[in-house]
Write a protein that binds this DNA or RNA. Structure first.
Length: 424
RNA sequence: GGUGAGGUGCCUGAGAGGCCGAAAGGAGCGGUUUGCUAAACCGUCGUACGGUUAACCCCGUACCGCGGGUUCGAAUCCCGCCCUCACCA
């Protein structure tokens, strides 16, 4: 979330940023926040002063008692009681105002970086680069949802019997290929100095809030009601939350973690066109890279992370393009996001396989994740993450683009991981 | 799930209604000194919000797992919850 300080001091910048993100009524809400914050400070001052009086008198009473001035002490007690009641009343007022202020502030999304293109939806995203040549397939080429049945490597129907729609079962070479991709992605991240972690895949409310899934995307997560846990929609949540409420020494930056986890998404309301086969699932596998970085360096880090993901796609020989999301398409918490899309030849469309984002201090402020500068003052850090990579659509593209009359050719980098070179 | 012990600053750990934002030691940081690695000594050493300030300083308030309560006054007493450890199941 945005910090009150920042909103107070950069009102115009905040309003402009929110408008670029197509946030409605930006001006009104920001004005309201500043007004409530003003009230909060006033009331806190009153509370603090009153409490200071009460504390001073309480100290007096202690001394009077020691000196045996019982009568005086009794009188002071009556006065102290009145002061402390007033302070308590003011404290309640402060608490309520803070609650109001908090409710207002968490409705605000992050501000877009200055280089984010203006625009309202995906059609306004800026094409940064396009790499590789689009394969031309024969007329008999099949989409992946037919290939998986033909070679019996992914079974949606049995998965639907076991759980429900969108929970496929990977079998035989299909399962091995999944495992190969995961290991390949993890090994590549390790080479890039990421520390591998295996986090829990259930998280609590505080973690959901920390990275911004709660309360914004409440309905998109599966809930374990008995324990009040949520199934993670991405490893970003548990990994970033490892550093909730922490002050990191500058010498330890950047923190780089990678984790493989299954991801769970209800996708409520997202089940429209173009979601056949592996294009949209309720459970899928993903390798996620996360970095925590000094604010001065976070945009260099963002580029570095993007390069890391691009290099994975190149090693897999998949044609892809990079988009910089426009204001209207940017997620709630992100300041700048690159989407990487792989071309699926049989579907003749681009599939999003990775999102690499800089959240600047938006998550860090919720997480209370800070560093100390040379003067020992604390400041918020920047958090970043990216999929490196999400499996299903990579798999879809691999199957479709690499199909031949003799079967599906496995990219060379994976041979050592799969133990086979072709699915037939 | 049950019983017992416990949760205090970066770490170890004392404090058991006012003298406590909190002893002591260690680590860290700054300095002095001794002809190396190292040791000794001195100083410093939490966070958040608010006030004040150009800034530093300074001042106020809150925080001893979390949330309530008792009291003029709570790390300390009471209640609820969470977590850790040990044993039992």
């Amino acid at each position: 979330m945005l910090s009150t300080h920042f909103i107070r001091e950069h009102q115009a910048v905040v309003v402009a940023g929110l408008q670029k993100k197509h946030f409605p009524d930006a001006e009104t809400i920001v004005a309201k926040i500043i007004e409530v914050d003003e009230l909060r400070r006033q009331t806190q001052k009153q509370r603090d002063d009153k409490q200071a009086e009460a504390n001073a008198l309480a100290k007096q009473i202690g001394l009077l008692m020691k000196q045996g001035e019982k009568a005086q002490a009794q009188q002071a007690k009556v006065d102290a009681k009145a002061l402390s009641d007033e302070a308590k009343h003011l404290q309640e007022k402060v608490a309520n105002i803070e609650k109001d202020l908090f409710q207002l502030i968490i409705t605000l999304p992050n501000l877009p970086h200055e280089t984010v293109p203006v625009g309202s939806d995906a059609t306004d995203n800026e094409l940064i680069e396009e790499v590789g040549t689009l394969p031309s397939l024969s007329a008999e080429a099949l989409p992946h949802w037919e290939l998986i049945t033909k070679y019996d490597i992914i079974d949606f129907e049995t998965g639907s019997k076991v759980t429900g729609t969108g929970f496929p079962i990977y079998k035989g070479k299909g399962a091995k290929l999944q495992r190969a991709l995961i290991n390949f992605f993890l090994d590549e991240a390790a080479r890039a100095q990421y520390t591998e972690v295996q986090p829990p895949i259930l998280i609590n409310k505080d973690s959901g809030f920390g990275t911004g899934q709660l309360p914004d995307k409440d309905g998109q997560m599966y809930v374990v009601t008995e324990e009040n846990f949520f199934l993670i929609p991405t490893a970003e949540v548990p990994i970033t939350n490892m550093y909730r409420d922490a002050i990191i020494e500058t010498s330890e930056l950047p923190i780089k973690c990678v984790g493989y986890t299954p991801c769970f998404r209800r996708e409520a309301g997202n089940w429209g066109a173009d979601v056949r086969g592996l294009n949209r699932l309720h459970q899928f596998d993903k390798v996620e890279i996360v970095q925590i970085q000094h604010p001065d360096k976070s945009y260099d880090t963002l580029e570095e992370m993007r390069q890391h993901v691009q290099q994975l796609l190149e090693k897999l020989a998949l044609p892809y393009r990079v988009l910089k999301l426009c204001g209207g398409d940017l997620s709630f918490t992100s300041a700048l996001t690159y989407d990487l899309e792989v071309y699926s030849a049989a579907q003749q469309r681009w599939l999003e396989v990775s999102s690499v984002s800089n959240f600047e201090s938006y998550q860090a402020n919720r997480l209370k994740l800070r560093y100390r500068d040379e003067k020992k003052k604390t400041h918020l850090l920047h958090t970043l993450n990216g999929s490196a990579l999400a499996l299903p659509r990579i798999l879809a593209a691999l199957l479709e683009n690499n199909q031949t009359p003799n079967g599906i050719e496995i990219p060379e980098v994976l041979h050592a991981y799969t133990g086979f070179t072709r699915i037939d």
